[in-house]
Design a binder for these strands. Structure first.
Length: 428
RNA sequence: GCCCGGGUAGUGUAGCCUGGUCAACAUAUGGGACUGUGGAUCCUCUGUGGCGGGUUCAAAUCCCGCCUCGGGCCCCA
């Protein structure tokens, strides 16, 4: 070798992915399916920048999340962050520019997000989130519609087996109060509850001087999906009365109006973040393993935190990549794109005419490709077959004498000579 | 950040334990057999041990570090 140089091999950064045309076909399908569903519920799409001021995220989630945020100072010394999620940016957008829009305001979004975390299946450092915010209402029907839409988004995309769980944080905190637990003790318990480690919860409760009898009753309610039973247990509490009543309306609407019958009431749903209040829900895909949560959401207060005028808000986020993996795992049949026509010119003399015909077809919205390698007819047909073309069009001097081409049906092998002006109607 | 298991041509695999006779098989891609008719067959080119170091006369094989993928924690989408 005349020159000596070090060959540098560039690798994709950890936790990120490249997508092939086949991958993108699937991703675009899912995106289309989801945005159709959002639109059908009257939601409008918004988009926010890929990076924001770091403060936006620490204000929402606390300093703790800096560990998993990609943040950096820009050349002007501003502390910026690649967005780790989309609720905060969208709420910032709302407070900054959309507060005077008529209510309720229904917004949805797709966007890639970034988190510095240990990658594994269904968990990446750059990932796609879909989600929505419903601003200006917290009626039971609004919340029922929100939950139903989350469910339909996944169902319409083609998922067969998903589990929906609904909880309520206000009821949970009343349960805590009833046991006389300090905030600190509650904080210790919530992760255990979230992970359904009820034996550990029991042990901890006893350590916190809760009577065994009360602890058992508490755990029973936590694991119960019977609204009446929870109602009975907490009947003397006024705050809970309204929440439980709303919950009954919500589940009634889900079953009767929205045809979502497959759900579970679970007071043990916690959600990680402090700004949730009242209703919370989660949807999981059991086929996924450790990273099986597809969707999480509920009602929350963020507007005031970002300096806006108080207004009830709820929303949810869906893990786009996980949804796609779940579809693949379930064996969903994605449609394979087919090229309508593949043009082959017999020799170089008719090349220009071939390209001219290709342009004419493309104008008529016929997907068209042309042999660009000057390969023989045999090789070209083989190529047309391998890219799954519906028709091969052979352009040669013989046919051109009569202003015609040969059209070959790649599935049946039949072929016929067709006038150039008739190609479009023949193919359509 | 922690524990565990992997990484061999573009893709899928064999070999590793027991170091040498080992880098193989299949498939895919380009070219040709075939200068106007495909999914077949045959020929041929291209391409490989994640990276670095150590042990050894000799490393895909044994040891260490790193990178990376996967399973499980943690956290969450």
């Amino acid at each position: 070798m005349c020159f000596s140089y070090t060959q540098i091999v560039f690798n994709i950064p950890r936790g990120t992915r490249d997508f092939t045309p086949e991958d993108m076909q699937k991703r675009r399908y899912l995106e289309k399916s989801m945005s159709d569903t959002f639109n059908s519920f009257g939601y409008g799409e918004v988009q926010t920048p890929m990076f924001e001021n770091l403060d936006l995220f620490t204000a929402k989630s606390g300093e703790g999340i800096i560990d998993e945020i990609y943040s950096f100072p820009d050349k002007g010394g501003r502390n910026l962050a690649l967005r780790p999620e989309l609720t905060a940016p969208v709420m910032r957008f709302y407070v900054e520019k959309m507060q005077m829009e008529p209510k309720p305001l229904k917004l949805f979004y797709f966007g890639n997000c970034f988190r510095y975390d240990r990658p594994q299946k269904g968990r990446y450092r750059e990932f796609m989130q879909a989600g929505c915010e419903l601003i200006g209402t917290n009626t039971p029907e609004a919340q029922a519609e929100l939950i139903a839409m989350a469910y339909k988004l996944l169902e319409n995309a083609g998922l067969k087996t998903i589990t929906l769980s609904i909880g309520n944080l206000n009821i949970l905190s009343v349960l805590f109060e009833k046991l006389g637990l300090s905030k600190e003790n509650q904080k210790y318990l919530t992760p255990l509850i979230d992970k359904s480690q009820f034996e550990d919860v029991y042990d901890a409760l006893v350590d916190f001087n809760v009577k065994p009898k009360d602890a058992t009753a508490f755990l029973e309610i936590l694991q119960s999906s019977d609204v009446e039973k929870i109602s009975e247990y907490l009947k003397d509490n006024e705050i809970v009365k309204k929440e439980l009543n709303d919950l009954k309306i919500i589940t009634g609407l889900l079953e009767n109006a929205f045809d979502v019958k497959d759900y579970e009431i679970k007071m043990s749903i916690v959600r990680g973040l402090d700004y949730y209040n009242g209703l919370v829900f989660e949807i999981e895909a059991p086929c996924l393993g450790a990273e099986k949560q597809l969707c999480g959401g509920g009602a929350y207060d963020l507007i005031e935190l970002f300096g806006g005028r108080e207004s009830p808000t709820s929303g949810f986020a869906i893990g786009f990549d996980r949804t796609l993996i779940a579809l693949e795992t379930e064996g969903y049949k994605f449609t394979i794109p087919q090229l309508d026509a593949y043009l082959i010119s017999v020799n170089e003399d008719v090349l220009e005419k071939t390209l001219e015909i290709a342009q004419m077809l493309r104008k008529q919205k016929i997907t068209t490709d042309v042999d660009l390698l000057r390969r023989g007819i045999g090789k070209s047909l083989k190529y047309a077959s391998s890219i799954n073309a519906k028709k091969a069009i052979i352009v040669g001097p013989k046919e051109l004498e009569q202003d015609s081409v040969t059209i070959k049906n790649m599935e049946t092998g039949d072929q016929e000579i067709v006038k150039i002006k008739d190609i479009v109607s023949k193919i359509k």
